[in-house]
Computed example of a mutant assay.
Amino acid sequence: MAQIELRNVSKRWGSFVGVDDFNLTIADKEFLVLLGPSGCGKTTTMRMIAGLEDVTDGDILVDGKRVNDLEPKDRDVSMVFQSYALYPNMNVYENIRFPLKVRGIDPKTHDEKVRRASRMVELDDFLHRKPAELSGGQRQRVALARAIVREPNVFLMDEPLSNLDAKLRVSTRAQIKNLSHELAVTTIYVTHDQIEAMTLADRVVVMKGGVVQQVGSPTEIYDRPANAFVASFIGSPAMNLMEGQVSGGVFSAAHVEIRGLNAPDGPLTLGFRAEDAALAPQGSGQITAPIYTLELLGDATMISVRVGDALVSVKADKSYRAEIGDMVSFSIPNEICHLFNAKDGARLGD
């Protein structure tokens, strides 16, 4: 069992705040993803949990025990790094075995543990090879096996897929998902890739500038983003955001008029997702504008228009054909609209 609590945890270097007043309880066996852009504090948070960074303020507890002052080796966590961190002079078998030797585990159990970990990540045919003889995906699997072999209470994964090409990212992501189900170990996973977060996580913590913006299941964060930043960060494509004015329940911006909104008069940021809107008969939609670009995605066609300084996209059928510059209308029903405060980006309404 490994329940992790972060209580008012902060990290500062002089006047620079890396993580500010982080509070969270991570349940036993939960797969939690820390998500955000570079510099948001997600890796620093993970490193504090691992003991690789000192906590400036606050407490970190594992199963109710304060671990702030424990050395990394005493925290019973296993970390998978972005850089793989393999020993080039050792073959795959010895790389996987290394944590067992360091921790003084009974040598009689090593072979069974190494081969079990190897089997779980499909490395049995590569145990004799050196890291230089492996592909990037194979090296990452060695790093995963080396973490598994220790049988820790907590897995920490710091952007483990970022060095892989797109196809390998998909297959390795599936492997991590399956492993987390099979091992049932508390896992904290750091990424800037929202697709990884959405597909892997039980819960997602979205961070910006060292501050938690929202915590929730992937569905909750996707359907009800807490603010415009979360809305812009989650989804592929990200949520369309348009700045405009509301007067008498009517939202107006360049090429846009949406009526019947329950919103106060004044500046407003209105958002909607590309897949929730639809094409409308010419001139009859809430947005009518010339096509800025068309992207054929295979299963759909993405149509984009300009609304002020923003590009606004809508998914159409894969058979849709038009030319750049042609006029197009989009239907934006009120029920798909998300409303955000124009000043601080906070979500408005229920």
Score class of each variant (00 low, 15 high):
Thr25Met: 13
Ile26Thr: 05
Ile26Arg: 01
Ile26His: 02
Ala27Phe: 06
Ala27Tyr: 05
Ala27Val: 02
Ala27Ile: 03
Ala27Leu: 14
Ala27Pro: 05
Ala27His: 13
Ala27Trp: 02
Asp28Phe: 11
Asp28Glu: 15
Lys29Glu: 15
Lys29His: 13
Lys29Cys: 12
Lys29Phe: 06
Lys29Met: 06
Glu30Gly: 01
Glu30Trp: 01
Phe31Ala: 04
Phe31Gln: 03
Phe31Val: 04
Phe31Asn: 00
Leu32Asp: 05
Leu32Ser: 07
Leu32His: 06
Leu32Asn: 03
Val33Arg: 01
Val33Asn: 03
Leu34Tyr: 13
Leu34Gly: 07
Leu34Cys: 12
Leu34Gln: 08
Leu35Trp: 10
Leu35Val: 06
Leu35Pro: 12
Leu35Arg: 10
Gly36Ala: 11
Gly36Val: 13
Gly36Pro: 14
Gly36Arg: 09
Gly36Ile: 09
Gly36Glu: 11
Pro37Val: 10
Pro37Cys: 04
Pro37Ser: 14
Pro37Asn: 09
Pro37His: 14
Ser38Ile: 07
Ser38Met: 10
Gly39Asp: 11
Gly39Gln: 11
Cys40Ala: 14
Cys40Gly: 15
Gly41Ser: 13
Gly41Arg: 11
Lys42Glu: 07
Lys42Thr: 06
Lys42Ser: 14
Thr43Arg: 01
Thr43Tyr: 02
Thr43His: 03
Thr43Glu: 02
Thr44Asp: 08
Thr44Lys: 04
Thr44Trp: 05
Thr45His: 03
Met46Lys: 01
Met46Cys: 09
Met46Glu: 09
Met46Ser: 06
Met46Trp: 05
Met46His: 02
Met46Gln: 13
Arg47Trp: 05
Arg47Val: 02
Arg47Thr: 03
Arg47Asp: 08
Arg47His: 12
Met48Leu: 12
Met48Glu: 10
Ile49Gln: 00
Ile49Lys: 00
Ile49Met: 02
Ile49Leu: 04
Ala50Gln: 05
Ala50Ile: 00
Ala50Tyr: 00
Ala50Phe: 05
Ala50Lys: 03
Ala50Asn: 10
Ala50Val: 01
Gly51Ala: 10
Gly51Glu: 13
Gly51Pro: 12
Gly51Cys: 09
Leu52Ser: 07
Leu52Gln: 07
Leu52Met: 14
Leu52Asp: 01
Glu53Cys: 05
Glu53Thr: 04
Glu53His: 06
Glu53Trp: 02
Asp54His: 13
Asp54Ile: 03
Asp54Leu: 09
Val55Gln: 04
Val55Glu: 01
